[in-house]
């Protein structure tokens, strides 16, 4: 038996919003420790890794490990049926071929359940080693979304250049070029408004703006986004999911032809 209850169904809605731009379907791997998801986008260029810890749920029970392959379009339709203030419970029997979503209004006067067919997905998992990154930048998630949106008007690529002074985002194309420099915040009153750089060595890397824009669909999950970069390895874009977990996106830097 698997059962996971979240008082804030809006978290699940936001998680889905954060992944459905990149993925059509995904396997939710449920175990005693929580729910994990790892999937590459269709083009195998980027990867989504999500973790929701069992202790972050209001109730969590997972007697046997269960992998639930879900069509994210169908899941979106079902979660649209939940009000933001509803309590959501996901349930499945062991070896089940369906999952049930139960939505309860805060006053318990309305209870709805939606059963969704599961899919057998043959998804490849990649082993991602623990990595020390040359630069780790934290900045307001809304600012990062704005920068990605603004720069994608100029070109297909965004150059991210990080030094101890700050971080610079650049793009160039047919209409011209654009540079956005963010200085490291000198005095931090509020962490969610700060720009911070932890740097071992300066790094300059080039990324596809289309994917960066897709990653920013997670903006509503967190006030802060963390970018981890090293020369010649994939960028990690991480958003915390409240007190319950995180979502990470991986994207390899473009290389010279």
């Amino acid at each position: 038996m698997f059962e996971a209850r979240l008082v804030q169904s809006s978290i699940l809605k936001k998680v889905l919003e954060a992944i459905k731009d990149l993925l059509n379907e995904a396997t939710f791997d449920c175990s005693d420790s929580g729910i994990q998801l790892q999937a590459m986008d269709n083009s195998h260029v980027s990867l989504v890794s999500m973790n929701l810890r069992s202790d972050g749920f209001d109730k969590y029970r997972c007697d046997r490990n269960i992998s639930m392959g879900m069509n994210l379009g169908s899941m979106t339709k079902i979660l649209k049926c939940a009000a933001n203030e509803d309590v959501v419970t996901m349930k499945a029997q062991d070896n089940a071929d369906t999952v049930t979503f139960v939505f309860e209004s805060p006053n318990q006067e309305k209870v709805s359940d939606y059963e969704m067919k599961l899919m057998n997905l043959d998804q490849e998992h990649l082993g991602i080693p623990e990595t020390e990154y040359a630069c780790v930048v934290r900045l307001p998630a809304g600012e990062f979304a704005r920068i990605c949106r603004d720069l994608s008007q100029f070109g297909e690529s965004v150059v991210i250049s990080c030094t101890k002074e700050g971080v610079k985002f650049s793009s160039a194309g047919d209409i011209g070029s654009a540079n956005i420099k963010l200085a490291q915040t000198s005095n931090v009153d509020k962490e969610e408004l700060a720009v911070t750089v932890e740097m071992q060595e300066p790094v300059t890397l080039t990324f596809a703006s289309r994917y960066l824009n897709s990653f920013t669909k997670a903006t509503s999950l967190s006030n802060v986004v963390q970018l981890s970069m090293s020369p010649d390895v994939p960028l990690v874009v991480e958003y915390r999911i409240g007190e319950i977990g995180h979502i990470r996106y991986y994207l390899a830097p473009k290389i010279e032809d």
Partner: peptide
Amino acid sequence: SRLQPFLKDFYVPH
């Protein structure tokens, strides 16, 4: 121009 590598060029499937 620049090429976009696949993630499998960096991480091993398991």
